[in-house]
Amino acid sequence: MPGTAIHREWERFTLPQKLGRYALYLMAAIAVVWSFRTIEIIAEFLYDSPAQIADLFTRMWPMDWSYFGSAVWSSLVETMHIATLGTILSLGIAMPLGLIAARNLTPIPALNWFAHFLFVTSRSVNSLVWALLFVAVFGPGPLAGTLAIAFRSIGFVGKLFAEALEEANKGSIEALVAAGAPVRSQILMGYWPQVRPAFWSIALFRWDINIRESAVLGIVGAGGIGVALDTALNLLYWDQVAVVLLTIFVVVILAELVVTAIRQRVL
């Protein structure tokens, strides 16, 4: 049909999509401008910040390595135990909750909803706040830290575990059901082999995060290397602070390397 070519322009997004995007861009811009104009910044502090930073580094150097033997090493061991025990405890609590939260395993919406509510609560409260609460209950020390790490991790572990369960292939489970397997066997022989890689990957990932988190819990008195950091900070021994910071840095990097190595070998 010569001469009747319809003019068509290809567009990636429809009009409502575009409008939605622009509205969100606008909202983001307004939020940033509002925050920028109203946030309280004390200008006087800014003037001497270069001097303060220089002071910080000169006081940090040379590092006081005697602090490592006297306080840092033992509190580092404590941090590792807090992170590991906290992760194990959270796995113990989150796995049954994950079974309840998975819609294909527990076909009762109220229970699913309840488990998800617990997950969201656990994740919404920061680990430092959990630590504050447990310090008030159990007193300062690693018990509060371990429980804080565990309660903070439940939401993360449980949510991901429930998602892995929901993604499990139905075929082998239907086969088990057809063979008359009880629920326990369905979970152990049907679901567990399917979610096992996801489970280990979640556990390792969370352990890695928990090492980082448990390093600061001591600031509110919940044990671990944070206590050594807090003591040094309060006494303004920046050369000791530097030792603690370097130790945390090395441990976090090592933990990440270990997790990556285990993942590659096991998963």
């Binding site: 946030i39 910044i41 004390i42 502090f45 800014l46 303060q52 910080l56 600061v216 945390i248």
Partner: peptide
């Protein structure tokens, strides 16, 4: 921990 260092560097407050 980063916040502790920045509090030393730029003083207390939101910044």
């Amino acid at each position: 921990i980063i916040a502790i260092l920045f509090v030393k560097a730029v003083g207390f407050g939101a910044l």
